[in-house]
Design a protein around this nucleic acid. Structure first.
Length: 430
RNA sequence: GCGGCUAUAGUUCAGUGGCAGAACGCCGCUCUGUGGCAGCGGAUGUCGUGGGUUCGAAACCCACUAGCCGCCCCA
């Protein structure tokens, strides 16, 4: 029988790496909490229509990358339901916002999520078919201030704080405005018009983009097409006064907070719902990501709620590629320090096993992290096992049990101390 | 989805047609109350899977699978 393996594009996360994942997630929770975010957990699968409408039929994500199936219990009936593993989480959050009538609280909603997403892409380093995103959304009725440029800047400032607290080095923030839901179509129309006469001169990829998603031509890497691209109309010239003012306020607030950024007029996002502010955080070459150097991305989506049949609820959000963040931290060795247990309890002889376990129980109740050896180990083996796992070793032999004075070996200092049992926990904590 | 590179021990890798290897790691012994050094010994394995060529294949050919690199796209 063929051995079973994790399917293409999926992987197992094991210790000690999961320690890093927990550290990243704990840091995210702690930072987000300081900004007033609460956690939301939405289903892993949703009605396919949610993504078709929310993310956009023509996007690659929806048109070719989703895991979609007909729900079996109703597959044979007329009401068979098409379900899809979520390829991103914003649509689910907005759906929940509408479904639970969060607008009626009148309050600004600040929600974050941490969870797996699914896209059927060709796997690569930093790109998996099941991947994790840490994301957040700020949305609410206009009177809650959800459309304020202040929110955009706050979210960006929070992200810079988060990355700095994790110790990510060399990150860069690029921002742009893609305009309101009325200026964007005008710009796309102008772009199509400008592309029509020069399309044939461009690469095959860009000819296809010019047809399907003209915005994407802008951030093409094709060197031969740069001259044409440079001559295309600029989105900045199509922003209405309100969008221009909004973008200016975002940048002013970033300046006031000391968050460094560059304006990249070619930064467009692939998902249809983005309006006004869009952004991306990247890391430098050599950060373990290759060309997948976008650590996180996001933007404003003022029309998404209405698109999904809900009330007007402007919002802004982001998604961090957690897998990529972990790869970056590993490459940058931000987590060099190895986590070791507080103590290894080494019984001398199997007849000391019970006493050793009882001692371990006592220490664990005192909040220490402890591993227990086995009395059948020779002392040398105990030393070797203990040195790998723990900072100190506690020897439980005949003398120690009878006297109540334990022998503690400190591996980093290399010395040995006799400690009365009553003081052991506090000694090990030091 | 497209193009390319790769797949050998737990890990990193060598091995261009003739007995399956090295280093590190692992286990044992010297050595059952003080390790890390040293010496000796041991196990590493369907050479990714399936087929083909050949007297003979880890090696050459084909297909598949998976990983990686570059596109596409995106986090």
């Amino acid at each position: 029988m063929a051995t079973l393996k994790a399917v293409r594009g999926t992987r197992d996360l094991l210790p000690p790496e999961t320690g890093l994942w927990n550290y990243v997630e704990a840091t995210a929770r702690a930072v987000f909490a300081r900004y007033g975010f609460g956690e939301i957990r939405t289903p892993i699968f949703e009605d396919t229509a949610l993504f078709a409408r929310g993310v956009g039929e023509e996007t690659d994500i929806v048109s070719k990358e989703m895991y979609t199936w007909q729900d079996r219990t109703r597959a044979d009936s007329d009401s068979a339901q098409s379900l899809t593993l979520r390829p991103e989480n914003t649509a689910g959050v907005v759906r929940a916002y509408i479904e639970h009538k969060l607008a009626d609280t009148g309050m600004l909603q600040k929600l974050f999520y941490i969870g797996p997403q699914f896209r059927r892409e060709r796997p690569q380093r930093g790109r998996y078919r099941q991947f994790w995103q840490i994301g957040a959304e700020v949305l609410g009725p206009a009177w809650s201030g959800a459309d304020s440029a202040l929110r955009d800047a706050e979210v960006l400032e929070m992200l810079s704080t988060f990355l700095n607290e994790l110790g990510v080095k060399g990150w860069k923030l690029e921002v742009n405005s893609v305009g309101s839901s009325t200026d964007r179509p005008k710009y796309i129309a102008a772009l199509r018009e400008a592309l029509a006469p020069v399309r044939d001169k461009m690469s095959a990829d860009n000819q296809r983009r010019a047809e399907t998603n003209p915005l994407r031509v802008l951030d093409s890497k094709d060197a031969g097409d740069q001259e044409i691209i440079d001559g295309l109309p600029k989105i900045a010239d199509f922003l209405d006064d309100a969008s221009k003012e909004h973008f200016g306020q975002v940048l002013a607030a970033l300046d006031a907070c000391g968050v460094a950024y560059t304006v990249n007029p070619r930064l467009v996002r692939g998902l249809d719902y983005y309006t006004r502010t869009t952004f991306e955080f990247t890391v430098p070459d050599g950060s373990g990501l290759g060309t997948q150097n976008a650590l996180l991305g996001g933007g404003r989506y003022d029309g998404l709620s209405e698109l999904l049949g809900g009330p007007k609820a402007p919002g802004i959000g982001f998604a961090i590629g957690e897998d990529r963040l972990i790869l970056t931290l590993q490459a940058q060795e931000a987590m060099a320090k190895e986590q070791k247990l507080d103590a290894f309890v080494a019984p001398m002889g199997v007849e000391r096993n019970a006493a050793a376990l009882a001692l371990a129980q006592e220490l664990r109740r005192a909040g220490l992290s402890v591993e227990v050896g086995d009395g059948s180990f020779r002392l040398k083996k105990s030393f070797e096992a203990a040195d790998k796992l723990a900072r100190r070793m506690v020897i439980v032999g005949e003398d120690e049990v009878s006297s109540g004075i334990l022998t503690v070996k400190d591996f980093s200092a290399g010395d040995q101390t006799k400690v009365p049992r009553a003081e052991l926990a506090s000694f090990l904590r030091a």
